[in-house]
Nucleic acid binder design. Sequence first.
DNA 1: TCCTGGCACTCGACTGTAGCGAGTGCCAGT
DNA 2: ACTGGCACTCGCTACAGTCGAGTGCCAGGA
Lengths: 340, 340
Amino acid sequence: MGLDDRKLAVLRAIVEDYVATQEPVGSRALVERHQLGVSPATVRNDMAVLEEEGYIRQPHTSAGRVPTDRGYRLFVDRLSKVKPLSPAERRAIERFLVGAVDLDDVVHRTVRLLAQLTRQVAVVQYPSLARSSVRHLELVPISTTRLMLVMIADTGRVEQRLVEMPAPILADDVTDMRRLVNEKLVGTRLSETPPLVQALVDEASPDRRPAMAALSSVLLETLVERHEERIALAGTANLARSGLLDFQGSLRPILEALEEEVVLLKLIGEVEPSTMRVRIGDENEIDNLRAASVVSTGYGPGSTIVGGLGVLGPTRMDYPGTIATVRAVARYVGDLLAQN
Amino acid sequence: MGLDDRKLAVLRAIVEDYVATQEPVGSRALVERHQLGVSPATVRNDMAVLEEEGYIRQPHTSAGRVPTDRGYRLFVDRLSKVKPLSPAERRAIERFLVGAVDLDDVVHRTVRLLAQLTRQVAVVQYPSLARSSVRHLELVPISTTRLMLVMIADTGRVEQRLVEMPAPILADDVTDMRRLVNEKLVGTRLSETPPLVQALVDEASPDRRPAMAALSSVLLETLVERHEERIALAGTANLARSGLLDFQGSLRPILEALEEEVVLLKLIGEVEPSTMRVRIGDENEIDNLRAASVVSTGYGPGSTIVGGLGVLGPTRMDYPGTIATVRAVARYVGDLLAQN
DNA sequence: TCCTGGCACTCGACTGTAGCGAGTGCCAGT
DNA sequence: ACTGGCACTCGCTACAGTCGAGTGCCAGGA
């Protein structure tokens, strides 16, 4: 239970060395590389305690020690200071994000930037519709019985859906419906729209009601209920970088998990007031990712949060550096969104 | 040079066995599993010839034979019949694609379907803008100096771009411009628009010209010139399936290549009149993919082609089955698009 | 009480040797 | 032109031996 300062220092040293070298670290190497001021034998005693407490373990009897998930957890909670970004990194961020013209563009650039800076897999969620409000709704006739509904959100997101009309519809009717939905819905948060949409149907004149009902059901079902979240992913090649030593030999489960949008959303989408979220190995709810760690946070203009972003890598990752990078990128993106 | 029928049969047997077992195949095993009607010794002589001609090779001196890229090439060109799809596969295709509501939806379902059926990496290009024509253009005011341009193509693709206005603009002006661009551009192929767009600017009244110029430059630059192609990808987890025996040990180069949209476009985007394209190992122009094979084809409503789709896998793949699946899926998708 | 040097021990990694077996190339015979 | 036989090659596996990094423990000293 009692972990004195030196034992903590030993744990920190083990984590740092292991992250750097990727090899089990022994007592001799430890005292050589760090100024611990004690002999290897002493370190060994400390290690024995740390192992008993579950912070480190031995791959085999006569090998060095390796941090456990619990060890990493202690490390990030109490032993690491957030590393300030290097000027080069700051410049890279600015260079990358300046010149983005489009929301799509911003998201794409961000995800590639994150992957490149952290050398890991990066995930960026598009601004969540549930957290957006309506800026404009457009109805475009495609044929006599088909409309295209285009929704532009204040976050810059644009979504389009086909709406099948129950009966042929006139240009005037379209104009009218366009005016109505815009009057009622522009400015409202998407999560608050359902009653308003219902009211639109109820108030429509009887001959327009079927058309309005079709429109509203598309609005409700596809935009509000299963609020279509979108996700961008980059850097999967980084998984294969450090050989197969991490991820216990097989990339398959990881790649499988990354193909499921639902999983990705779970990873970075559950945005909480907390600023930064680190899930280490077993702490991940998804089985396939029990050999990986995820660092994620929310982003948005000002202090509001409209979506999540983060990176995924081996449990053996540079937590301080990764956390710093993720935080910095999230801030830059937030600022960028605020400019609109 | 002279490859008589039996030698070809031997090559076919080698390819089939190697694809099935993933192990070098020897002369004894070959006569046992296939009815060749000759002795192992005879087969050995044939193998020696095939090896001399570069169709097969020995991993090491006393191992069985493995097909070379050239051997696979001969196999697909002259030795394989396209395998008819199983009813189960046909059903899977229908089940998967029925119920797609959206172009996005169609593309997503298609790429997942392809990945699942072939158990390889699937790539689907969105209908190319260059091959689309304009169905409708919409201008939506975002602020006094910003418009959003939404273009709907006949293929169902929807693209939006922000347009910065050089000066504040009135609602009437927007209405006017919307009418003008629609009058002139609807129905034209995107590749033919540049002169028409230029004409729009020239013919605009002097006070409207700056605004029209801004609009037209966005149209030309982002939609026509660098005709934004979009790509969907699925099944990367399949790369890690058969261990690391394929792809000579490292997935990294493959994953890297798959992250580059440009590369993906090269893979499946160069649509030719030819119906089906198979590139085997070295035949790939991209270095990172010299250990992989790509099977691709074009798709579109009726006999026109609007985009490409295909799969990527190890050179050791089931070519007849893969080709059949890719072709069938492409046809289904084409039919689906034709219904709009 | 805590730290240290010393020592015996463990065990993985590496090396070298030997036997096995799948597979080949070649050749003489039919 | 095909076949059976035979010597040969060479990767794979098992086994034994050595090396060395690393540990746990203990007795002695601050």
